[in-house]
Design a protein around this nucleic acid. Structure first.
Lengths: 70, 70
DNA sequence: ACGCAACACGAAGTTTAACTTCGTTACGAC
DNA sequence: GTCGTAACGAAGTTAAACTTCGTGTTGCGT
């Protein structure tokens, strides 16, 4: 079992809080529910490829940076 | 309409050929069909989050590098 | 010229997991 | 003590990843 989802979730949470956004704001801008964002941040599931692209867009960062961990 | 899938597909193809692997080899190692790899490389659809992780694993490269374009 | 490997490409079907819709609980800020 | 924010669960829906066919093409070796 990989742990990419967990790492990715933490990364998103970090970037979202840095951008001073709530889960609700991010969810609205991305076009999904808050629960979905919550699930992604907790590593329950990853985003779809389309959602991945939108998240990067909303957070104004290259997709590549969403996968920079540690 | 985003173009992340297309860019990602090209990137995978580049990395796969650099690793001197056929679509069939990559597909077997990742655990999907050749058609799925073909679809991903042509930008028809992106990989699931689990498949994304496996692709990075098989290509022995960080996920981050799969999203380095241009 | 022939055969073969590798891949593009389409259509239609299946299945997984992303996503939703409820609802409860917790915790810090004010 | 309630308000905002988020964790967390379960169960259901839906979208898209993935499969299973099949045809066509390109390039390369012999």
């Amino acid at each position: 079992m990989g742990q990419l989802k967990k790492q990715f979730g933490k990364r998103i949470k970090t970037l979202r809080t840095s951008a001073k956004m709530t889960q609700e704001q991010l969810a609205n801008d991305v076009g999904v529910t808050v629960e979905s964002i919550s699930n992604i941040e907790r590593g329950i599931h990853g985003p779809s490829f389309d959602t991945l692209e939108k998240i990067a867009d909303v957070l104004k960062t290259p997709v590549q940076h969403l996968f920079v961990f540690e």
